[in-house]
Design a protein around this nucleic acid. Structure first.
Lengths: 136, 136
DNA sequence: CTAATCTTGGGAAAGGTTTGCGATTTAACA
DNA sequence: TGTTAAATCGCAAACCTTTCCCAAGATTAG
């Protein structure tokens, strides 16, 4: 896909770099701390505002944990997860199950698709066993 | 699918009823207001806590708006959305595109799947046009 | 170069959600 | 039915995120 978006500010580029450099997703708070540490000083508000902007440009995606935290990652990293609704631990899926899926044209005709989020929720083995043990 | 979960408290049932009765998703705040109005008095904390529990039981699902609000809906209502990253408006998808998708067994062997969220993000027609106008 | 306008940034405040903790209710068992 | 342990509740505080508002910087026209 061509890199058609232009006009990233210097700080937006910094944020995007930081996200790309880190193999894991990051919360807004952690991103802020990392940037402070790496000499790119930036207010917390600015971090969140630019994250929002980057989402609007289709470059950054986020997902929400049950704890209320929001984790951000670059869109080009097409990761999805299994998340345990009990302990909150997540596993990364090896591949995107809907990579080649087509949405009905009628629904996307008036909509420029930028990215998607697909998350699976359930019980991990240990939480499941714990519940079984209690219910018996 | 059989209703295998048991042991819902009276308040959890009230919350579930309220969600089922309302055709739209609801925020925690709105749910709380509705319950106050319908004589089922309940603290805000209790609402959120029980929503979490209902998620753990696989009966309720939520999605997060860019505003930070969280919207809850019953899992049996298998709805997904197109959401505009600019204006935040959402459209409901007519059908679930991954209803019949199989995850690799290797990844779900140790995981009891309860539900999923699938959300598409992009630009709605009017926001897209506005951006084009600016960029030219 | 200057002035008016528009965009961007930061601090403080507000909003929604979650957590901690003592008090109350529910449930189990005798 | 009475006693006791466990689960649940609600308030207050904490947390993360977003919004408000004003100052600083950039852009454009004259």
């Amino acid at each position: 896909m061509p890199e058609k978006r232009v006009g990233l500010t210097a700080r937006q580029q910094k944020i995007l770099e930081e996200l790309n450099d880190c193999p894991d997703e990051m919360s807004g708070q952690k991103l802020h701390r990392n940037l402070l540490a790496s000499a790119a000083n930036m207010g917390l508000t600015t971090v969140y505002r630019n994250l929002r902007t980057l989402q609007q440009k289709g470059l950054v995606r986020c997902r929400n944990l049950p704890t209320g935290e929001t984790l951000y990652s670059p869109v080009n990293r097409d990761h999805h997860h299994l998340t345990c609704v009990d302990c909150g631990r997540t596993m990364v899926l090896k591949s995107c199950p809907i990579k080649n899926i087509q949405l009905p044209k009628a629904q996307t005709r008036n909509f420029e698709l930028l990215f998607h989020t697909l998350e699976f929720f359930g019980l991990c083995k240990s939480c499941h066993q714990r519940q079984e043990a209690i219910e018996i």
